[in-house]
Write a protein that binds this DNA or RNA. Structure first.
Lengths: 337, 337
DNA sequence: GACTATTATGTAACTAGTTACATGAAAATG
DNA sequence: CATTTTCATGTAACTAGTTACATAATAGTC
């Protein structure tokens, strides 16, 4: 039977010291600054560590250093690609910087986010990466009271109370919409995800409203997913409503939209144009290839990782960082002039 | 200037005790078993905790309980949907069970996985969820030496040295291939991702090899992504090679394949059939809708969460759990009889 | 009113490391 | 050869909690 020495009979520093016939300080030195220990002693201690299968307790280290080396990220969901690429980049960079990343999902619900943030902080997370600007006062207070570094991704706003590291959603949407109008599209239907607590979608809508004279002319709200995009188009077609172009405020919805238009026998961009925002890798492979606005989410993930790590280590609040969105012209927008 | 009291001047248990005029034991009781403390005292202590903004140190708690409440998941990547849904489900269930989830990516590289596993364990993770069966001996030894609970997802094998919680890749691929043959498809091209260190892809290929008399007849290896699927089809078309059906061993490649076939003007399933494996949500919305094998990855995520949490808490190794794959007939497979 | 039971609280010893300071011995300097 | 410096190591006091045990103060019983 395998003994179940979960934590109990695991060797600790004192065991190693006793077994090797040295003091705890010496063992600690072998682990942390081996140069200070004579070679013979060091060898002996190292061998004892091997023999006893000794592993330093992370908790005990943390208690002394006040550092857990763990950061947390709160994202709305992992269920689609929108945040996955950012997280992937963030995780990779953080590991290089010596941190682990705890991921928690919020379902775009500020209350849930607050609860999860509390759990993460209670579990020893040293800093947080939040998504967007919609958070509860309780969360802000918690961060301030505990002096927890926290940065915000997926948006850019120098005035915001936390450092933002991301793209300007307003600009990105304007870029997309203006491309459509510059190609002669008059009647554009905006397909967007839920706006409740989603300031990024709201900012994109606001930008378009501005360009349409203060009021969005035609918009349909749907689920922020491939399925949502498909459903929106299905409804539009069922109602027999016509338009020049579809602007999906996120690529995933554009993917669904394109599929559904193909199914309905509508030619894109001959019958109508379609645009997305984000430029996921798959956007280059849709049929037809999706014209979209590129959001450098990978770069954002890396910068966020560096920003939060720096803040935690050097107690220096990072400046907001804007990553630039750019228009990617492919095949789903026609020139109507 | 905001004081930078990162860790230092943060109030601790002793500060609260002194300020409230009670002993440290009483404060600890207020936090852990408030019923044992008289109401007046409890109120006073709670108020002092509020005033001083006292927050329990996770590290100090962990040192006593030997429990960090943190689990780790090692997945090949977050860059596409394949693992995102599983992780999402896992994270949600783990939070319910009182754990946090640290996510690390391995790029399907056992050495990198071993390094990351070590980092996670050194950072205090109590248990691991691994993906697939390709791991280094060093990793196995590390897990055994440290008595770290670890379960494996995305496969099912009762003989494996760690408990597997997942689907049987062999069965899933057989299910897909047999559907194609039962519909009269003779000449099937298998499109699959890299097999190096990817035992799941290998198991799927093995199943098909068996059904084809020991040797895969036609296969093309590509990147495990939408882009990869599209490229594979592009190459196939460029070479002018014909076939009855395309079996993509993962939905994401099927998405790319369908797009590319649409682009080439090939009718699916009239010209050729296409199948995927996984049944991502988007599979129901492709054009045409993708026939695939459903892998209940959400259920797998939940079960894995429960299995590893149980093992960590009750020191009881879970039994392997198989989640069943099922055929989902949609529109991309024609009957050739 | 004395004796026991119950309840609330405190003391101090744990958990597993790190580290300032002290000590002793060997090496370098005058 | 004595003195100072350097190096290796040990002692014990920290980090921030938890908890077994002791004690004091009520409450309940005979």
């Amino acid at each position: 039977m395998s003994q179940p020495p979960t934590q109990k009979n695991r060797a600790n520093l004192r065991d190693v010291a006793r077994e090797a016939g040295v003091s705890v300080a010496t063992v600690s030195r072998v682990l942390n600054s081996p140069a200070l220990v004579q070679e013979a002693t060091r060898k002996r201690v190292q061998q004892t560590i091997e023999e006893l299968g000794f592993v330093r307790s992370a908790a005990a280290r943390a208690i002394n250093s006040g550092r857990t080396q763990i950061l947390g990220a709160l994202v709305p969901t992992l269920d689609n690609d929108i945040f996955a690429i950012t997280l992937n980049a963030m995780e990779n960079r953080l590991v290089e910087l010596g941190f682990s990343l705890v991921v928690a999902t919020t379902d775009e619900d500020p209350e849930k986010e607050t609860r999860k943030a509390k759990e993460l902080l209670d579990n020893g997370v040293e800093g947080l990466v939040l998504t967007g600007k919609s958070h509860t006062d309780a969360l802000y207070q918690m961060l301030e009271r505990r002096y927890v570094p926290a940065v915000v991704i997926s948006c850019f706003d120098t005035e915001y109370r936390l450092p933002t590291i991301g793209y300007d959603n307003h600009k990105a949407a304007a870029l997309a919409y203006q491309h459509l109008t510059s190609c002669g599209h008059e009647d554009v239907v905006i397909i967007h995800g839920p706006t409740e607590y989603n300031d990024r979608t709201q900012a994109r809508l606001d930008a378009i409203a501005e360009l349409q004279g203060g009021q969005i002319r035609r918009a349909v709200e749907t689920e922020l997913s491939v399925t949502g995009g498909a459903q929106a188009v299905r409804n539009l077609l069922d109602q027999g409503s016509d338009c020049d172009a579809l602007l999906c405020l996120s690529d995933v919805m554009a993917f669904g939209a394109l599929n559904e238009l193909n199914r309905a026998g509508k030619s894109v961009p001959e019958n109508l144009s379609v645009m997305g925002i984000q430029d996921l890798p798959a956007a280059a492979e849709t049929y037809p290839r999706l014209t979209t606005v590129h959001l450098p989410v990978q770069q954002m993930g890396m910068q966020a990782a560096e920003g939060i790590a720096d803040w935690v280590v050097h107690q220096e609040r990072p400046r907001p960082i804007e990553v630039q969105s750019t228009l990617v012209k492919r095949e789903t927008v026609a020139n109507r002039w």
